[in-house]
Design a protein around this nucleic acid. Structure first.
Lengths: 86, 86
DNA sequence: TACAACTCGGGTAATTCGGGTT
DNA sequence: CTTGTCCGAATTACCCGAGTTG
């Protein structure tokens, strides 16, 4: 096919010259850790970690089946709070 | 209660006219994501995501050969529902 | 057509859940 | 009140080879 010069791209939604939008760069995905990982970091039992979630002490994600995953950032923050005693 | 006469129907123009459908700007193609992508979002293995489909936990589309694709909207909804604790 | 990356399916080990108890 | 442990049941993770995707 031969594409003749389109006179002017009548793109309605194209206000100004934005960046050429990179192909598909993956946005920074949050790193998730398992209850066992958190338990090891805190030196407690994995079940205790689950209890923290139920009591709202630690935010987390749940799989559709009820297993927990935690943001490493949240775990890290809580670790510092627990260990920081100025 | 008897509602007093409504002052005047706010419709000033011809009511039989529908809204001026904008000039066709949105190709509403659903954004599909792969099992690996969903797996990363939930911090689980890609195979686990496939199991969710088989168990009806997550709706999805399938290629004629059996590979799974998911609507980002469905994934997002499930992700919020899984971590909604504001 | 060939290629790299990903996914599927089956099977088995490890982890987690939930409740109840100490 | 919080945590650790025991149990059974459920969920998930990793192994392989083969097929699909783009």
């Amino acid at each position: 096919m031969h594409t003749p010069e389109p006179p002017a791209p009548p793109l309605s939604t194209n206000p100004s010259r934005l960046a050429p939008l990179p192909p598909h760069t993956d946005p920074p995905l949050p790193e998730l850790v398992t209850p066992g990982e958190v338990a090891a970091l805190f030196g407690v039992d994995a079940k205790t970690v689950t209890r923290w979630v139920l009591r709202g002490k630690l935010p987390g994600v749940r799989t559709p089946s009820g297993h927990h995953r935690f943001l490493r950032t949240d775990v890290d923050r809580l670790l510092r709070q627990a260990g920081a005693t100025p």
